[in-house]
């Protein structure tokens, strides 16, 4: 009996390391200066999945990511660390999707993969900070969820027991499959790349990448089909285009205001009530706090 673990992972701009060079003089974000990274909590999610795989013979870890063609980078990264294979959901028609539309597309892709035991997502992605896609996907698949997993306690082919973070403490819960789990950043960090896996998968590519690198006909991919990372379009997952992108997204961004960081010019203040209050108001108005 096979045991299938699907991991949802996203490639995100590294919004944590917004150093001074990442802000332009006018106070706007210089997106180009932010590297694209494996969403941090999705690495915790991957580790969680790999720990399950370590304990269950024959278990398979599949990475699913939705994003532009270069997001294949994180699928490779996941394979270097122990994932078995990955699929990239990519199509221009996905652009502008909010979490509802994203979870709709992801849920269709998960269905296309066939029956599975575990669906593992990160708690949240650092570009949106919403923590919605995991639970929304679970709901669309009609399966229950365990949010904020912190530790794998026990797992076998029938059920899984997890310690999870709650508001002011922790809770140990168990459930049968299929179940969705969202993994918290306080869970174990991901194991490093494995040298053997790195050798095995370093040439894995999507078709788009092969075209871009002009090596479409490379013999390698005929003899080693596992090196191909499949790309799925809107048509492949049989999605209703109206339920995707801007038209499928109930949330709209009305306005965006940049947080303005002033140039370094030290202001000296005393500790009077007035001075402290003025400072707090300045910080609140500048959206630095609050």
């Amino acid at each position: 009996m096979s045991f299938k673990i699907v991991v949802l992972a996203k490639q995100v701009p590294d919004t944590r390391n917004v150093g001074k060079d990442a802000m332009k003089a006018d106070g706007t974000v210089n997106r180009a200066a932010l590297p694209a990274i494996f969403n941090p909590e999705d690495l915790n999610a991957l580790e969680f999945a790999l720990q399950v795989k370590d304990k269950i013979e024959g278990a398979e870890v599949i990475i699913l990511t939705m994003g532009p063609y270069r997001a294949a980078e994180i699928i490779r990264e996941a394979m270097y660390r122990g994932a078995d294979k990955g699929y990239l959901i990519t199509d221009r028609k996905f652009a502008g999707s909010d979490t509802l539309a994203t979870s709709y597309a992801i849920s269709l892709a998960v269905k296309k993969l066939g029956s599975f035991n575990l669906l593992v997502a990160g708690r949240q992605a650092i570009d949106g900070d919403t923590a919605q896609v995991g639970p929304q996907t679970a709901e669309k698949l009609g399966i229950p969820q365990i949010a904020y997993a912190e530790k794998l306690i026990e797992v076998n082919k029938e059920e899984i027991t997890i310690k999870r973070r709650i508001e002011r403490g922790v809770e140990t819960v168990s459930a049968k499959y299929p179940i969705a789990v969202t993994v918290h950043g306080s869970a174990d960090s991901c194991r490093p790349r494995n040298a053997k896996k790195l050798m095995q998968f370093k040439h894995s590519r999507t078709l788009t990448e092969l075209k871009n690198e002009e090596r479409e006909n490379a013999e390698l991919y005929k003899s080693r089909p596992y090196l191909m990372i499949e790309e799925w379009s809107v048509a492949d997952i049989k999605a209703d285009v109206e339920a995707l992108g801007l038209s499928g997204s109930p949330t709209k961004v009305k306005t965006i205001e940049n947080v303005v960081f002033q140039a370094k010019e030290s202001k000296s203040l005393g500790d009077s009530n007035q001075e402290v209050e003025d400072l707090m108001i300045e910080l609140i108005d500048g959206h630095i706090i609050g």
């Binding site: 919605q132 639970p135 929304q136 949330t251």
Partner: peptide, 22 residues
Amino acid sequence: TANGRDVGPRIASALKCGLTAD
């Protein structure tokens, strides 16, 4: 909260409506 962000998205998904976190 942990609970609010656990149920909120499930509800938005079921009712097909928008949810803005935090």
